[in-house]
């Protein structure tokens, strides 16, 4: 009975702790996440962490998607 008296407020506090929750949109901070960590694309064997090289390669690759300049006007 005595144990019940101090356990009840404790349980109530535990139950209430859920109520301070804000909208359930995950606040994602770049590179931080509670789950399994993932390496970034420029950390692969091909780039070895050279972010600048990866970025310029991606840009060059993306530019290849336009045919403007490749065909006679």
């Amino acid at each position: 009975m005595n144990a019940l008296k101090w356990m009840l407020p404790l349980m109530a506090a535990a139950a209430l702790s859920a109520c301070s929750e804000q909208p359930q949109v995950v606040s994602y901070e770049a590179g931080h996440y509670s789950g399994k960590p993932d390496s970034r694309p420029w950390e692969s064997a091909a780039y070895g962490g050279d972010k600048a090289a990866w970025q310029s390669d991606m840009r060059a690759r993306a530019r290849k998607q336009t045919e403007i300049g490749r065909m006679p006007e």
Binding site: M11, A12, A15, L16, A18, C19, E21, P23, Q24, V25
Partner: peptide
């Protein structure tokens, strides 16, 4: 994510209290 989670959570807590 809105009323069901938030109001629902409050309701359960209120009943418990």
């Amino acid at each position: 994510n809105g009323p069901i989670t938030q109001w629902g959570g409050w309701l359960l807590a209120a009943v418990f209290v």
